[in-house]
Nucleic acid binder design. Structure first.
Length: 270
DNA sequence: ACCACAACCTGGCCGC
DNA sequence: TGCGGCCAGGTTGTGG
């Protein structure tokens, strides 16, 4: 579930809590959560580790540790992080528990168990292949146009491709395409430069607004401590099937593209 | 290189 | 109540 704005919200909430904290001990209850290294070695190496900073790249959270190690966490569909007192036991969906040096624990919960963690010396080992950060200077309209050139896949599926631009997921792809007035089924290569310029602008616009609203809390996403984001209140088309388009009044349609629900207005999006 | 699709998991909801 | 089917915000691996 969490896309760039949801992960950035976690980063902002976690950073002041974890900056300078020590991880005393780590327990893994569902070994497949740990992608690298093996769960046993992960537990061993995640002992007495000082956290320097909490960063983000695309939908990945990066915990910079002293001693040139980085703990990378991807929440995938249903991952959550929550602080608890030491005395609170892990529930059935808690797969990793970090014991901190302030009588608190950080629990990683994940109902669907898709989320993964890596402990690596070089983050590029995991992050290589990601496209540019959409809110940074490195992301430019010309770059986007270049990546869409010659692509026959739908623009919707290309926006979900993390190698083209990092951090856009199903919600923000649908919203950006609606605001751009572009039909999600269009082949990437069919977009004019003027349309790419608009799409570039709208991607940044919806992501910034999503961050401002602390993400979209529909069924499962909650922030640290169980707080909800509010960007779902700003959605124009996402999961609005059958409702009137806020711009032209025609009924919002739901189709499937790249195996994902796609919502759009057949009147406004050409 | 690119594209489509199954697989990974659990739970909620809907119709019968 | 129970069962089958569908749905869910993401990524990977496989085959064409």
């Amino acid at each position: 579930m969490p896309e760039l704005p949801e992960v950035e919200t976690y980063r902002r909430d976690l950073e002041p809590e974890l900056h300078g904290r020590m991880v005393r001990k780590t327990e893994v209850f569902w070994p497949r959560t740990i992608a690298v290294p093996a769960a046993e070695e992960f537990q061993r190496r995640m002992t007495n580790q000082l956290i320097d900073a909490v960063g983000r790249r695309g939908k990945y959270l990066l915990f910079s540790l002293a001693a040139h190690q980085t703990l990378i966490v991807h929440l995938r569909m249903t991952g959550e992080l929550h602080f608890h007192a030491d005395s609170v036991p892990p529930d059935k969906h808690t797969h990793v528990r970090f014991w901190l040096d302030d009588n608190r624990t950080l629990h990683y919960r994940d109902m669907r168990k898709f989320g993964r963690m890596w402990l690596v010396a070089d983050p590029l080992e995991v992050l290589r292949g990601l496209g540019p950060e959409p809110l940074e200077e490195e992301f430019q309209p010309d770059f986007l146009a270049d990546r869409l050139r010659n692509r026959t896949a739908s623009i919707k599926s290309l926006l979900l491709n993390q190698g083209i631009v990092a951090g856009v997921g199903n919600i923000y792809a649908d919203e950006a395409l609606f605001l751009s007035g572009i039909d999600p089924r269009r082949p990437g290569k069919s977009l004019s430069m003027a349309e790419v310029d608009i799409l570039f602008e709208k991607i940044r616009c919806v992501l910034n607004l999503g961050i401002e609203k602390c993400g979209s809390s529909l069924q499962t996403y909650v922030r640290l401590g169980g707080m909800r984001g509010t960007f779902q209140d700003e959605h124009q088309v996402f999961r609005k099937t059958g409702e009137p388009c806020p711009r032209c009044g025609r009924s919002i349609q739901r189709i499937v593209l790249a195996q994902r629900s796609t919502h759009f207005c057949p009147g406004c999006q050409k």
